[in-house]
Amino acid sequence: MTPDQQAAKRGKRKPGTPGALSRWMQRKANARTIRKVRGGRGTMMGMDLLILNTVGHRSGQPRETPVAWFADGDDARLIVASGGGNQNPDWHANLMAHPDQVTIELPGRAAEPVTAQRLNGAQREQAWSIIAAAQPRIAKYQSKSDREYPVIRLTPR
């Protein structure tokens, strides 16, 4: 096996490969979106955004990711770990590894601690109906995927 094949198998890519470019572009887009949310502009493509602050599940380093959220009652928020359809996004592993070390930032507001809970069964179905009604395109993405997208409820601590 060549070094390139070994790196790809481990999920690492050499700089200059399409995967590396894609990750670089995603980081740049996320940084721009985070600046917008912190500046008070919290919508994109008709969805409300928040900044999800987690702790890396392997590194232990702080991570921040802009994600779309959906209201669930008065104070809880729902987020979906779609990850482009084929796998859970990195933030999902961080969230599950350290659910008690999560904060969120809403547009123009300071970070607030939340408790993250992955929903299953009837709770997930009820939450999914809220999400699908608010954004039918997410339901369409789900219908094209072989896996069930995790739905997470964020509740203030």
Score class of each variant (00 low, 15 high):
G19D: 14
G19I: 04
S22G: 08
W24G: 14
W24T: 14
M25R: 15
Q26M: 15
R27N: 08
R27H: 11
K28S: 07
K28G: 06
N30V: 02
A31R: 09
A31C: 04
R32E: 12
T33D: 11
T33Y: 12
I34Y: 02
I34Q: 03
R35I: 09
R35D: 12
K36Y: 04
K36H: 08
K36V: 08
V37K: 08
R38C: 07
G39F: 01
T43Q: 04
M44I: 11
M44Y: 08
M44W: 06
M45E: 10
G46E: 06
L52M: 10
L52K: 04
V55C: 06
G56C: 00
H57S: 09
R58E: 08
G60M: 10
Q61Y: 05
Q61T: 11
P62N: 04
R63P: 04
E64C: 10
E64W: 13
E64F: 13
E64N: 09
V67P: 07
V67L: 05
A68R: 07
W69T: 11
W69R: 12
F70G: 06
F70D: 05
A71H: 06
D72W: 02
G73A: 03
G73P: 05
D74T: 13
D74V: 08
D74F: 07
A76C: 00
A76F: 01
L78C: 07
L78Y: 01
I79Y: 06
A81Y: 02
A81T: 09
S82A: 15
G83N: 00
G83Q: 00
Q87S: 14
P89A: 05
D90A: 15
W91T: 08
W91Q: 06
H92N: 03
H92R: 00
H92Q: 08
H92E: 01
L95D: 01
M96T: 15
M96V: 15
P99Q: 02
D100F: 14
Q101F: 10
T103R: 13
I104P: 01
I104F: 03
E105S: 05
E105T: 11
E105N: 03
P107G: 01
P107F: 07
